[in-house]
């Protein structure tokens, strides 16, 4: 019943990319390796390869997004695909069209791939179960469940800067309970061999029994960040205060905000990551976000290469040496 089964074809190749859970280390490594080959495309004068020429990619966003949609858009265009951006939140859903009907209509327009973002956990898997067999689905974030391309681009960034996963300590800090990034990240880091993955936050933002995912739980910031090689800060949404999970943004920053002083507790060469968009002065101090240890903007750049890799793989046109 695990969804990992439905994202692989009979030969074990990636058919959809719905979540990290259940994928093999080899497959994740293959994604990272392919992304390495695509990375130089962005530095060229002509930023295009012809891998998806004649294919139509639909960015199906049921929830607002700027960064993720833009980088998927760029990735598809650099692969020479035709791209359709649909903001469903403001069209069909309001007209009362069901999700299944929206999908039928897009299929009728002969699209080849859906990149889906939806506010409900499990939406990507549901959509993959509904589409015609020739269509691939890439999860651009489903509720609190998974955001697998974000996790891969983070791992890509970590591998470039730290080389090996096997001796790292990674701390994921903040609103883990509501974070799809955190869940995908935990799966990816564990699969790639990171020995210690920590989650750090107050009890109201750490979901129950998350230890079952193989992480160590810390409620005290200083202990959680101690000697970490990678610090991943999560975005804190304003709604968390309204639903009585936290007293105030001010108090949150006081206890869990990443400042230069606190960052000194981490390893000397620690890198600071954030899936964005950042809340300056809430989860992260500007001095850290813009500081030397921050790799937040590199993450964004790497996101394009990683998404190119994933899109080309699910379309069955895996990147080979000559692609780049």
């Amino acid at each position: 019943m695990r969804q990992a089964n439905i994202q692989l074809d009979a030969e074990g190749r990636l058919k959809h990319f719905l979540g990290i859970e259940g994928l093999s280390r080899d497959l994740l490594t293959q994604i990272l390796d392919n992304a390495e080959r695509f990375a130089p495309v962005g530095d060229r004068a002509v930023k295009k390869v012809p891998l998806l020429r004649g294919k139509t990619v639909v960015n199906l966003f049921f929830e607002p997004s700027t960064r993720t949609r833009t980088t998927f858009d760029l990735a598809a265009k650099r692969l020479s695909a035709d791209v359709l951006n649909l903001n469903i939140e403001s069209s069909s859903a309001k007209k009362g069209e069901s999700l299944a009907d929206t999908l039928r209509n897009l299929e009728a327009m002969q699209c080849d791939m859906f990149v889906v973002r939806h506010q409900t956990s499990g939406a990507a898997a549901y959509i993959a179960s509904q589409v015609a067999p020739h269509i691939s689905v890439v999860n651009g974030g489903d509720g609190r469940h998974e955001h697998p391309t974000q996790a891969m681009l983070d791992c890509f960034t970590i591998r470039r800067l730290k080389k090996r996963f096997e001796d790292l300590t990674v701390a994921i800090v903040g609103d883990v309970a509501h974070s799809r990034v955190a869940r995908s990240e935990i799966h990816a880091l564990k699969i790639l061999g990171v020995p210690e993955v920590r989650v750090v936050g107050p009890r109201t933002l750490i979901p129950p029994q998350i230890e079952a995912m193989g992480v160590k739980v810390f409620h005290r910031f200083d202990e959680g960040i101690a000697d970490a090689d990678v610090v991943i800060m999560l975005r804190l949404q304003q709604e968390r205060m309204q639903s009585a999970l936290l007293p105030s943004a001010h108090e949150y920053f006081r206890v869990y905000g990443l400042t230069e002083k606190r960052l000194k507790l981490a390893a000397k060469d620690a890198i600071v990551m954030h899936p964005g968009p950042i809340n300056r002065g809430v989860e992260i101090d500007s001095a850290v976000a813009d500081g030397l240890q921050s790799v937040i903007l590199q993450q964004v750049t790497n996101g394009i290469a990683v998404r190119m890799a994933v899109m080309s793989m699910v379309m069955g046109t895996q990147a080979v040496g000559s692609a780049a």
Partner: peptide, 15 residues
Amino acid sequence: HEGATSTRLGVAGIP
């Protein structure tokens, strides 16, 4: 049900 599975699936739990 709120537990390890709801946490992993990202589905809001009922304790």
